[in-house]
């Protein structure tokens, strides 16, 4: 969706990170989903590397 197409739509937001940004959107009755984000694989580098190996199989 180009920027100009976006301008014609209702903004629908996925918020990833600080919850307060989501609360602000909801308080204005805007459509939003908050992602309860955590670092991938809890940030364990070994696990991240294993998962990446599998992703790279394409």
């Amino acid at each position: 969706m180009s920027v100009n197409e976006l301008f014609k739509k209702d903004l629908k937001v996925v918020n990833i990170g600080l919850k307060s940004f989501y609360n602000d959107l909801k308080s204005q009755n805007l459509t939003a989903v908050h992602v309860n984000w955590k670092p991938k694989a809890g940030g364990k580098t070994r696990m991240v590397s294993l998962l990446d190996k599998l992703k790279k199989m394409n």
Binding site: M47, K53, L54, K56, M57
Partner: peptide
């Protein structure tokens, strides 16, 4: 299990 699984694929040359 993930370790073992990736190892299996490695052993079979399916991943680097």
């Amino acid at each position: 299990a993930l370790e073992a699984y990736v190892k299996l694929l490695e052993d079979e040359g399916l991943v680097e």
